[in-house]
Nucleic acid binder design. Structure first.
Lengths: 166, 166
DNA sequence: TATTGTTATACTCTATAACTATA
DNA sequence: TATAGTTATAGAGTATAACAATA
């Protein structure tokens, strides 16, 4: 209990937050130069693997809300990077497919981002980098569950102090 | 050059983004149960180390905009976790100091977050975890500069494709 | 005139609820 | 009635500009 020396270990959330912000800020101009935004790139990436998902399926794949996906698909479609065709089995749904131009843009973006990642990792010894990437991948999957663990529910007093207005 | 097999290496930004989102989402209820929000915790943490900075200095320390800092300081002050006193040397400025109650809340939050971090890292072998934390700290400092490196300026065509409306 | 803290305004992003057309 | 896609509305977060008190 007498943690007089706080050990000064940095908090993971703060570190991940800074890193993601810095990387995304660095990637955005690279994507913009190729005519797309961050979320449109995410959509293109997902479409590169999936076959011809419906918009709702695509929403679930990317984790992006279906209503916000629409604007991205609109932009991608007018840019000729995806096509939306009515689902023959269900005329309410629309199947989304990536085009050849879409694959080309995706590949170009991926290369640029890969280069950025390599720049960031440039100073890390290869052995350490490999450990880092392996642990990172493990944490990403583990993070889905964190917080649901019963390590701590709420502190002493019962009132959840809900109504903060900030 | 013939990278036919994309090697499937995940992108760092996506991984950091997911991790920070998951961790922050898990931390928010812990902080809320103690009566503060994420940014107020950041402010309290900064005040724990700094002596009695002025609001503008605190803005620079935390990286938070000075106008948005105000709401956080208001909330922290009515909660009795910080006090604002006029700077005797410059009557325009106000010095911000953390209170004893503020230190108590900070410590409680830090323990809870430390516990969350430990939960996340629970499955990682200690040796790997140590490497991971060391590399992570290195990357955080390196990330400040990434993107400013000349690894790639803009792709083929000169027009920066600026006016995207999304 | 410049600066500190503050307030006000606008703009983006997000979340939720309605609406249409199909089923 | 329920669902896929769309649109509209409201909220949170952010950025910028304006303002009062002081330097």
């Amino acid at each position: 209990m007498s943690d007089e020396a706080p050990a000064e270990r940095p908090e993971l959330a703060a570190q991940f937050y800074r890193l993601s912000r810095a990387l995304i800020a660095a990637e955005e101009p690279l994507l913009a130069a190729r005519g797309i935004g961050m979320w449109e790139y995410v959509v293109l990436l997902a479409l590169g693997s999936a076959g011809a998902p419906t918009q709702l399926e695509l929403s679930r794949i990317t984790g992006r809300d279906k209503t916000r996906l629409i604007g991205n698909l609109d932009a991608l479609e007018v840019a000729g990077l995806v096509v939306r065709t009515p689902d023959p089995a269900d005329r309410r749904a629309r199947q989304v497919r990536i085009t050849v131009a879409g694959r080309r843009v995706t590949s170009s973006c991926r290369s640029a981002i890969r280069r950025l990642d390599d720049d960031l990792m440039a100073g890390i010894p290869p052995a350490d980098a490999e450990v880092f990437r392996r642990v990172l991948a493990t944490l990403v999957t583990a993070a889905e569950v964190v917080g649901r663990s019963p390590s701590e529910a709420v502190p002493g007093r019962g009132a959840p102090a809900e109504g903060r207005k900030q």
